[in-house]
């Protein structure tokens, strides 16, 4: 991680239009932050792209898969030349071309209960861009243990959901979703993943720069067919197996 301090002139030029909005201090905070992105698929691609552009100083992205042609309707960081490449590596290469001021680390690995803690490391915030609840429960466990926020996102068809979890303060992922829905290849239109990924990336930026309010204690539901957003409340479960001891 770069040491904290003044932005150099190249950074001031690159981030000019957002420095007008958030200022140098917030930009330095983005530069000092480490974000762990779990998954380099339909959600992970837009999340990583916009966080890199915004100047997150260290992005760690983990995915076990290689790029396939069927990914290209929604995984917007890849193109036909990426097919067969490890997704995390393809993302890293693309992001480093976009923004050489940041550091991107690619990990090709399965995220499960035995690996999640090591993979997440000392990240300041975790982005759930995975495609199954088993992995999400593993990430939630690490988020609760490390007391770092987890930004959950999921999509199916034209529908999506987002929730930000602040362990010990708000409902955790297990409080929200105590039972996993069935998994399988979900039908998805790229725009749904793009919109949900954007909302997740926006949560990360707000959290790191301490601006606005986060989607906590509730689940944001996006309905792409009517272009509407609704919220359903999500309270902490006092008997939650993952977060009941946290204050």
């Amino acid at each position: 991680m770069k040491s904290s301090g003044m932005l150099d002139s190249a950074e001031k030029e690159r981030y000019k239009r957002q420095l007008m909005l958030i200022g140098d201090e917030a930009q330095s905070r983005l530069r000092e932050a480490t974000v762990f992105i779990a998954g380099a698929g339909g959600l992970g691609c837009p999340v990583a792209l916009y966080l890199a552009a915004a100047g997150i100083g260290r992005i760690v992205i983990a995915d076990m898969d290689r790029v396939e042609i069927t990914n290209l309707n929604r995984q917007v960081l890849f193109d036909e030349t990426s097919i067969g490449t490890e997704k995390s590596v393809a993302v890293k290469e693309r992001l480093q071309r976009l923004n050489p001021h940041i550091r991107v680390e690619a990990i090709t690995a399965t995220i499960d209960d035995s690996s999640a803690g090591t993979l997440v490391g000392s990240a300041d915030i975790i982005v759930d861009a995975t495609d199954n609840f088993t992995t999400r429960y593993s990430l939630n466990r690490v988020a609760c243990r490390n007391a770092v926020p987890l930004v959950h996102g999921a999509v199916c068809g034209f529908d999506g959901q987002v929730a930000t979890i602040i362990p010990g303060k708000t409902a955790c992922f297990k409080c929200m979703f105590p039972h996993p829905p069935p998994t399988g290849p979900a039908p998805v239109i790229g725009t749904t993943a793009g919109i949900i990924g954007m909302i997740q990336a926006n949560e990360v930026i707000k959290y790191i720069t301490a601006r606005g309010s986060l989607i906590t204690g509730q689940i944001l539901l996006w309905d792409g067919l009517s272009a509407t957003i609704e919220y359903v409340p999500a309270e902490r479960d006092p008997a939650c197996s993952e977060c009941r001891q946290l204050r």
Binding site: G44, G153, A154, V155, A186, V232
Partner: peptide
């Protein structure tokens, strides 16, 4: 009464 099936894809 609201019924919500969580989505799981990514």
């Amino acid at each position: 009464l609201a019924l919500l099936p969580p989505v799981a894809g990514g």
